[in-house]
Design a binder for these strands. Structure first.
Lengths: 230, 230
DNA sequence: GTCTATATCATGATAGAC
DNA sequence: GTCTATCATGATATAGAC
């Protein structure tokens, strides 16, 4: 539009990304065809290959545009916390709130696709498609590394391995939490207070912290199922 | 083979189910073609339609044959606990151990596909494919209802809604836990003690119970992110 | 940058001989 | 019950006019 002129199609690229994000979340990558995407977006079928090169590249771009922001924000929070602590170990709940709080705030944004994206992201951790998992691991490694180290410093009594597993468990709980009503219908058809975007955080955070700080099981004691030991 | 004669193909049906289960877990439903399944199973392409009728019916049968056992076992445990308690509320940890313990024991069976199936199942809670979710909800409703009621009785101080959410969170944590190494690689490339099948339960159970029994957040207090409130 | 038309391939399902 | 051959469909991707 302006001087350079090499930038046309004011929004068709974004339209494709928005629609693809939604459809990928609703139906998965394989089940979502480029015909459906372009049809719903009101653009030509060929345009997605023009703008992104392939379906695989489109998928990656759907993640990249939001993950960049998400992870930068997480690091910004962690940086702030560590700066304020001046080298002292952080309190665990601050670390957890930084990592998951940013995600939950994004998930609370139902206006600009943040909610859609976070649901897609949660689903994708266990996604079978290999190139997506590899891509995710790459995008995440730096951030996760920082938070891992912070947690290990914050919980000196807990074995390193245990912390990693619990981090993993927390991620799982959050994914389900965000996937929300759909998967929850399996458990109940209950009425939910979805109006309040902070409600989920107020439910999830105590759960995560309770799990993170739970006492450890004794090493091995051959207790099996605690059936006779009662 | 015997008198009735109407039962041929001693094992091709089971072979198809075993292979389908594995491939569905590894690559998802859409990405797994019937050609791949039959090819890997060493049976004819047409045989899957002969034995099951359609791909969709095959998927359902993959779930049905294991879910029946899994849920019956869960109810058996719960029945036993309630019988022993004679009407008194159960301790929460017993309920959790009944529900998740059965699943974790199945997940520990790497010999006969239990592990494969539980990973598939965990992935499927958030599966976009609608008919699968509906099918799961149907198979699960009776069991979940029973455990829900038991938990509500066991935790009289906690609001009903909160319990349902925490049940949901626990399911999420377990799914990730079982999906295990693959998804965990996102967090770390750590070495795992996979030899011991009970190890996962000893890590997960304390986490689940810690989350379930965590203190509740105060209702609403407009605290947003507890940033200024420190 | 956009569009039409099409190439190429893989899929789920079935018909019909054995 | 098994197998071969095939149908109809829908997928990704591209070529080439505008």
């Amino acid at each position: 539009m302006s001087a350079t002129d090499q930038k046309q199609s004011p929004d068709t690229r974004e339209r494709i990304l928005d629609v693809a994000e939604l459809l990928f979340m609703q139906h998965g990558f394989e089940a979502t065809s480029m015909r459906t995407i372009t049809g719903r977006a009101g653009v030509n079928l060929a345009s997605v290959n023009y703008h992104f090169g392939s379906k695989e590249a489109l998928i990656q771009e759907v993640f990249r545009r939001r993950l960049t922001w998400l992870n930068r924000e997480r690091l910004r929070e962690l940086d702030r916390l560590e700066r304020e602590a001046k080298g002292a170990p952080l309190k665990p709940h601050l670390i957890v709130e930084a990592f998951f709080g940013v995600a939950l705030r994004m998930a609370a944004d139902t206006e600009h696709g943040g909610h859609t994206f976070m649901r897609l992201l949660g689903r994708t951790y266990t996604e079978p498609t290999e190139f997506v998992r590899n891509f995710l691991a790459e995008e995440y490694s730096a951030v996760v590394e920082r938070f891992k180290e912070a947690l290990i410093k914050a919980l000196p009594g807990v074995p390193r391995e245990e912390i990693l597993w619990r981090f993993h468990f927390m991620l799982g709980a959050m994914s389900y939490a965000i996937s929300g009503t759909d998967a929850l219908k399996l458990v109940t058809e209950c009425e939910l207070d979805e109006k309040d975007p902070g409600a989920l955080a107020r439910r999830l955070m105590p759960f995560l912290l309770g799990g993170l700080r739970a006492p450890l099981a004794e090493p091995q004691a051959k207790q099996k199922n605690a059936r006779k030991a009662a």
